[in-house]
């Protein structure tokens, strides 16, 4: 375990940027924190919620799949430099692990792995949660983790890359920080995780009536934010841009809250109402994915609840569901 003090942070990031294409939480002019390049703003590794999902570094909202010019196909080149993405909370790392499985399963998604392969993934924990809350260490699922004790970062490596990257940092971790780290590892699962599990049980036992979904769906304005903010949502749409000589095919994040997501060419839609679509969104995470992947695919990051303008993010809905039907 090494130590990164705040006075060394800029230098640490500068050195990283010599080797890697760095993405990390930065502060924008209005106080919003996003995952961006060090050139985009001031690094801000702690201080509130980061709404942007760090998984977007590997699966961006829109990306080119190929271009075809006069019959010749060209795939985008692999990035010049590998990505170093800092900013995954322990929950985000669980999401990343999940979508790594998803994109590797069956037909391996080379577009995703073009960015993901050999990228360095760095976690953030300690007092870097929303509102300065304590996030327990991830303890893995990444190359290295930075644990904020309120004054300095403990740097914990989990891979060879991680060991190399923090090798030059001092190894003089203060005992107080070490003790906090040990205590934090013992943090029990929070009530939201239990809530999600209980809601999952209800759904799988078919104990949530259609009338509930009608009520929730009636509040959906189809902004699609819940899907687009979700680190485990992987659905995408495909478009072709045609000019006189070239076709560019790209994909972009799609949303199961949209009518067109499941609309058939005939015009019929098996998910033709907000109620059915909202049910599907929650059901997919809490009931279908456990069947397919052996685990619930909501890792309680809270982003859909943050972006939903009408309060029907997954936590809000499951809270209501559990209160009414358990």
């Amino acid at each position: 375990m090494r130590v990164l003090t705040t006075d060394l942070l800029d230098l640490f990031i500068t050195r990283l940027a010599n080797t890697w294409e760095v993405r990390l939480p930065i502060l924008l002019p209005d106080g919003t924190r996003v995952i961006g390049s060090p050139d985009d703003g001031t690094p801000a590794l702690h201080g509130g919620t980061v709404l942007s999902k760090p998984t977007a570094a590997f699966f961006p909202q829109q990306e080119t799949l190929f271009t075809a010019t006069k019959g010749e196909f060209q795939e985008p080149q692999a990035p010049d430099r590998l990505l170093f993405v800092l900013g995954f909370t322990p929950r985000d790392l669980a999401c990343l692990r999940f979508i790594d499985r998803f994109f590797a399963d069956g037909w391996r998604d080379n577009i995703y792995f073009r960015q993901r392969r050999n990228a360095v993934v760095a976690g953030l924990s300690g007092y870097s949660g929303p509102g300065g809350s304590l996030l327990p260490p991830a303890g893995g699922n990444c190359d290295l983790e930075l644990f904020w004790d309120g004054t300095l970062w403990l740097a914990i490596p989990y891979s060879d890359s991680g060991i190399k990257i923090i090798a030059e940092l001092p190894d003089t971790a203060p005992e107080s920080a070490m003790e906090l780290f040990r205590q934090a590892t013992l943090t029990p699962p929070d009530e939201n995780e239990n809530l999600i599990k209980r809601a999952s049980e209800l759904l799988r036992a078919d104990r949530v009536p259609d009338s509930f979904w009608a009520e929730i769906g009636d509040r959906c304005i189809a902004c699609t934010g819940c899907n687009l903010a979700c680190p485990t949502c992987t659905c995408f749409g495909v478009q072709d841009w045609r000019s006189a000589t070239t076709v560019e095919r790209s994909r972009m994040w799609d949303s199961c809250q949209l009518d067109g997501f499941m609309r058939e060419a005939s015009g019929h839609n098996p998910l033709g109402t907000e109620a059915l679509r909202t049910r599907r969104r929650i059901h997919h995470k809490l009931a279908a994915d456990p069947e397919k992947w052996g685990e619930i695919s909501c890792f309680v990051c809270g982003r859909c609840d943050s972006v939903c303008p009408t309060g029907i993010g997954i936590l809000a809905v499951t809270r209501e569901m559990v209160a009414r039907f358990e």
Binding site: D30, R33, L51, Q61, A222, T224, G225, V307
Partner: peptide, 22 residues
Amino acid sequence: VVGVEPSTTHPVSRGGLCVKGW
């Protein structure tokens, strides 16, 4: 341009966007 990020602090949008914003 490859995507959008909502402002989390704006007094009107408050972390949200509509589908046209996204």
